[in-house]
Amino acid sequence: MSRETPSRRGARAQRATAGGRWRSWLRHHRAMSLDSASRLLRHPVGSLLTMLAIAIALVLPAGLWLTLDGARLLDAELDESATLTVYLEKDVGADEAGRIEQALAAREGVASTRLITAAEGMAEFQQALGLEDALARLPGNPLPASVVIHPQDPAPAAVQGLADGLETVAGVEEVRLDLAWLERLRHLAELGRRVGLGLAVLFGLGVLLVVGNTIRLAVENRRQEIEVVTLIGATHAFVRRPFLYSGAWYGLGGGLLAWGLLTLGGDWLAAPIAALAASYGASFALPGLGLAGSAMLLGCSTLLGWLGAWIAVSRHLAQIRPR
C-alpha cells in the first residue's frame, strides 16, 4: 500500500495540492516554533541556565575577536609610523642632499620622503634633549643630513628589502629602521588571532555539547510521544522539528545574553584600556559589536543551537524504536 493506495478514501485524504502541502508545512513550523518557545518558558530557570552556559561559551571568543579587531585598527595606525631614516654622508652639502632626496623619492616602493638638513637635525636634537647650551658650544655641527622615508608597503619584509636597496645609493652613509617591536606586535596579533580561532572552535563545540545535552534530555522526556507519533506515521523531519526549534531558541537566547555581557564588559573595560593605550601614546578602544557584528553573533549562536539539537535528536532517534 504505497502512495497509489488501494483505498479511494485514503487516497483522497492523502492527495493534497502543492499549495496545500506548503501551507500545512508552514502551519506546522509556526506551531512547533511557538510550542517549543512555550516549553522553554514553562521552565524559565532551567532554560535561562542553559542559555547562560551558551552565553559564557560565546563571550570569550567573541570578546577576543573584538580585541583583535581593535588591534587591527591600532596596527593600521602603527603602519603609518613605519619609516626608514637614511643618513647621508657627512660631506654631502645642502644642494647635493636635495638631489639625493629626489632620487630616493623616485625609487620604487617609496611613498614619500622628507629631507632633514644637518641644521634642522641639530635643532630637533637640541629641542628633544634640552641641551641647547651644551651643544651650542660645539665647534661645528656633528650631525649629517638625513631623509625620512615612508615606504609604500609597511610589511617588515618589504621595508627591509627597500632598506637594502637604499644602502647602495651614492651619498648614503647608513639606513636605519627599527622593525623589531613592530614585528613583535604583529607576531602577537597573529598569535592572538590563532588563539581566538582555536577558542572559537572549542567553545563552539562547547555550545553544541550544552545544547545537545539539553535536547537529549528533552527527547528522553518525550520518548513516549515520539514512539506514538512514529507508530502513526510521523516522518523523522516531523519528529525532529520541535527539538530543532528548541535548540535554535536556546542558541538565540544564549546569543542575546552574550551580546549583553559583551556590551557590559566593553563599558566596564573602556576606561582602563583607554588609559593604558594613552600611556603608550596610542589611541586604542575596544570597538563595539556594531550591527553586522551583532547579527553575526546572534546568527552563529542560533545556528549552533540548531545544529546541536540536530545532532542530539538524530543520534537519539536512531535508538528510539516503537515497542
Binding site: 504505497s2 492523502q14 506515521g233
Partner: peptide, 8 residues
Amino acid sequence: QVPFYRRQ
C-alpha cells in the same frame, strides 16, 4: 516511505 505507509 514507511511513514506514509503507516498513515494508511
